[in-house]
Design a protein around this nucleic acid. Structure first.
Lengths: 132, 132
DNA sequence: TTAGACTCTATAGTTACTATAGAGTCAACT
DNA sequence: AGTTGACTCTATAGTAACTATAGAGTCTAA
């Protein structure tokens, strides 16, 4: 199949697929005489793997590592385990930070009652003088 | 004061201050004979305002808007209110998404018991076959 | 044969900075 | 006066993960 079909089936855009190839996530594939990329179902599987990882917020760099591990038999999967664990940790921290942020913004919003003019706007006042 | 001192006092880096100037967040300031930037306490205030906003995750584009509103007397502060409200909304969504992600990663992690070899790694298996 | 859909490469744009190179400025010390 | 060192200047490239564009080529169906 050609890149457009692969894009449809995988849910990635054509440009994104080419981007993944350039980044070394998808191996070089064969081409038609007219230089069009040709993919098989194996390529589709690989792409779905990448997509799955990306949807879980795993970076391209990390996906590269995972892909390497996948094809290096004999090594333990501790590293895979650790990568996922680290990722969960990162996300937890991000959630904590965002919650704090939301709290601060909530407080900020309370300083404003709509309808005033900007000269008396509590939000702008707070932003100008408060310390986070 | 010169840019280094302003950086120290504000907590922003020298490059970041120059970047804000280029982006139009800080007004053009005067220079010494030797072309060094010179700042007063007013500039420090403006920079602290920007920092405060950035720490609350407000984008540079939005800060530009806020700064404009600050100096356009007579207009209502409804717009400020709305901006902050939208921002809270965005953050809430982001938190929700991340929580979902964490849940999925947690489930993924459970498919792995450490010490196995990658051929049997539950995580890699899941990533290769599951649908999110 | 030609129109339309698709594909190709290469390049620039996105966000909010950070890092670097290479040059100039300035104050203090010898 | 010379020089060292800290600071500053501009311009440019890099970061992450794409997206968008230009301009050209390919393929297929009417």
């Amino acid at each position: 199949m050609k890149i457009g079909q692969l894009a449809d089936k995988s849910g990635s855009s054509v440009q994104t697929i080419r981007y993944y190839e350039k980044e070394g996530l998808l191996p070089a594939i064969s081409r038609t005489e007219g230089n069009f990329r040709v993919y098989d179902s194996n390529a589709l599987q690989q792409l779905l793997f990448i997509r799955q990882c990306r949807q879980l917020g795993i970076s391209i760099e990390e996906i590269r590592k995972l892909a390497e591990l996948k094809v290096s038999p004999g090594t333990g999967c501790d590293e895979v385990y650790r990568l996922v664990d680290d990722h969960i940790q990162t996300i937890s921290e991000r959630i904590r930070d965002l919650k704090q942020l939301k709290k601060e913004l909530g407080a900020l919003r309370k300083t404003c009652s709509t309808g005033r003019s900007v000269e008396n706007c509590g939000i702008l006042k707070s932003l100008s003088t408060d310390r986070a």
